[in-house]
Write a protein that binds this DNA or RNA. Structure first.
Lengths: 248, 248
DNA sequence: CGTCGAACGTAAGCCAGCACACAGAAGTCC
DNA sequence: GGACTTCTGTGTGCTGGCTTACGTTCGACG
């Protein structure tokens, strides 16, 4: 495996570089090519197909994953089978970080949403190669800080806002990548905001009538992000036409 | 300010050391006395009384706080005044970390629950003194990883469990410090699990009848942690006596 | 040792969103 | 191009916990 497989940067790439363009933080961005190469020696790459389980509670391998390509969904499972997606990992992001730091994640699962490529590092590699370098450790702290922020926002949304407002908020956030196209099914979106598939369908239908989104199978084209944000703030969940129950 | 004010450790303290004993992670634990002293030069200490606002959205000072003494509550505020506590910071923990890393926290507030002492560092101090040292940066990553874990658990609880189960779960978690005594009012606990004060009172009354907790004004003495965990798993929210509506 | 504010206790009514139960549409794999 | 699977659309109850509205009790502080 070559160093550039781990690292992004303007090193004159054409196609592979595109894969990384979405990453908000690349933990190796401060390193030189030679240094990344050294790290790349110890890391193993793995290709997985859509639906593969990367992390499950039983198999606590204590490893760190770096997503190179595809999307990975982190989720929790209730005894009754309901699930909640805690994060959707985009290329360049790391996950499983906390179990590499001596914690153990209770009942968290990680599943590939698309065919994906991940880089896997053992706990000793994390300590020896990543955390030993202050530049990399600082980037990891940055990534985790961003996740804390996201989780705090989502926890707040879940408790303080109605389901329609949460869906609008989630769509506004998700639309910031891929030109406003959110590639999720209604069920996946429902898992993300903590509601049911049916309710999600109903709300999305309402948003479509307001012409804030356009719906295709498995993908939601966001038309007006600002209006969605506005709607989530107003807590205004009144219907467009007189078809549903009135607003509260 | 002396170095030991920032650092815990077995340096022969008696009373001040007690203050730190609860901290799960001390970000300076890997450093020597001389090194901590260097950092202590640039940091300022601040004493605040109970109820003081340390962080509010308007005043985004871009700083990192290290709690030395007392308790601090991080919370979000909805337009209608309802609030949700995202974390309760104990001595030794850091907060405000994410805004020091280039992010900005939307509408997060930090309020001292007790009379508290915090150490305040500017953004440049964080970058120059903390993140530049891989040992400290790794500890910061560890703290943030723990918070991610906690937030994921709470988000999962909020969505997947009933209010009584969430309260039981929260109490079990909180009871791990101070010998099982949780120093929170019903309202503060309600804010933590995302419910109302009234519902919290009712559920606590139920737990008292089962003799799992003992209630005093402003403090909840947890008697049987295991039973609380069990109850939160079973999702069994049936009442003790026939006074409430039946279980679902 | 009385007064006052905060915390606690209780209860009736209501409604957002879930559970359940189908029907149609859009891919997709032979 | 037909059969099958997955996704989407829609309606009908039902209910957990929020809302509202009080009364009570604790503890601090003069």
């Amino acid at each position: 495996m070559e160093a550039d497989a781990l690292r992004s940067g303007a090193s004159g790439w054409t196609l592979p570089d595109k894969v990384w363009r979405l990453s908000e933080v690349d933990i190796f961005r401060d390193l030189g090519v030679a240094e990344v190469e050294g790290i790349a020696q110890s890391a193993q790459m793995k290709e997985v197909s859509a639906g593969s389980l990367l992390i499950s509670p039983n198999q606590a391998n204590e490893v760190l994953f770096i997503l190179k390509k595809g999307r990975v969904r982190l989720y929790r499972l209730a005894p009754d089978g309901r699930s909640l997606t805690t994060a959707i990992i985009e290329p360049g992001q790391i996950f499983g970080a906390m179990l590499a730091m001596g914690q153990h994640l209770d009942d968290t699962y990680a599943e590939a949403l698309d065919a994906s490529v991940v880089c896997i590092m053992s706990r000793s590699d994390v300590n020896g190669l990543l955390l030993a370098d202050s530049r990399v450790a600082a980037r990891i702290a940055e990534v985790l800080g961003a996740r804390v922020l996201d989780l705090e926002r989502r926890l707040g949304d879940t408790v303080l806002m109605s389901v329609p407002a949460r869906i609008a908020s989630a769509l506004a956030t998700l639309a910031r990548v891929d030109g406003g196209e959110v590639r999720l099914t209604h069920e996946q979106l429902a898992d993300l905001v903590g509601t049911t598939r049916e309710t999600t369908t109903k709300v999305l239908g309402d948003l479509r009538q307001r012409e804030l989104v356009r719906l295709r199978r498995g993908r939601i084209q966001v038309i007006d992000v600002q209006a969605l944000i506005q709607l989530s703030r107003d807590e205004d969940l009144a219907p467009v036409t007189g078809g549903m129950r009135g607003s509260h």
